[in-house]
Simulated scan of single mutants.
Amino acid sequence: MYKVAWDLDSGGILLVNSSKDEIIPPRPVFYEELDLLGFDKFWDYPKVEEPLLWNIGRRYYYKWKLVASVKGGGIFEKPKINLEDDCKNLSLEPVDVKLMVEKNLKNLETLKNEAIDFIQDTFKRYKNKVDQVIVSYSGGKDSQVVLDLVSRTLPPDDYIVVFTDTTMEIPPTYEMYEKTKEYYTNIYPNLKFYVARNEKHSLELWKIFGPPSRILRWCCSVYKTSPQVRLIKALNPEKDKIKMYIS
């Protein structure tokens, strides 16, 4: 497993075998987040597709340097921004994503090939033990990568793609699902996409249980697992008991 370190050349991160400078894997931060939090009152930055800086926990890093942190905040109030002393009038440049990818390409290829080997081995192990192999698609970055890797590994007739619509998704999630479906069905006409959805809109249960959260995770079983199981049973009416493998 690779470690992560800062890459000063690209303003991004590097995958490394080991490093005394290794860090907790950060997430990229885009201008929309900075606007939402109110960083535009202090910093100048372009509104571009590339990330502008990185976040670990509630701390923000620009070109490896800690520049700000946030505290508090909630549904009805913004968090308080704490700027480092010499970071009150920054002019941010976007991460050089192309350079970052080029510098990580060898290690990314290794990770890709290891993932493909794992998918092949797992499929061989379970293909005769289950009734359905499923790629569970959420519209997020992780499921996008999983779908791409599975599509490179297995024939399109050997699995299906299921998008579980919790009815709590934001519009870009639905847009991404439709674009993804169009893209892959153009390449693999035999690949089947399905949508699993609870018969009740989520807002009905919000009134009973409250909005789902990190602690109140009732939505996973009610709006993800159960709809998927009902869908697969409907696709296999001749089966009394359904065995599935979900990636």
Rank of each mutant, 00 (worst) to 15 (best):
P79W: 04
I232V: 13
S10V: 00
L205R: 11
Y245M: 14
I242G: 12
C87E: 14
L66D: 10
L105W: 10
D117Y: 01
L231P: 08
E238N: 09
V161L: 03
I134Y: 02
T225P: 00
S138D: 10
L235P: 10
M168I: 00
D40W: 02
I119W: 06
L203H: 09
V97F: 07
F193C: 03
V195S: 06
P211Y: 08
L203F: 12
L216I: 00
F30K: 12
E49T: 01
D21S: 07
G38L: 02
R125F: 07
Y194T: 00
I208Q: 14
E84S: 07
L37Q: 01
N186L: 04
E84W: 02
P211R: 13
Y223F: 15
Y184F: 12
V195T: 08
L52K: 08
V150Q: 09
V4H: 08
K200D: 15
N113K: 09
V70M: 10
E102Y: 00
V133D: 04
D117M: 02
L191H: 00
S18M: 02
K239I: 04
M168W: 10
R27N: 11
L15W: 08
F123S: 09
V229P: 07
P211D: 11
G74N: 14
R197M: 12
I187G: 08
Y159N: 09
T185E: 13
K98S: 12
L111Y: 06
Y184E: 05
V229M: 13
K181R: 15
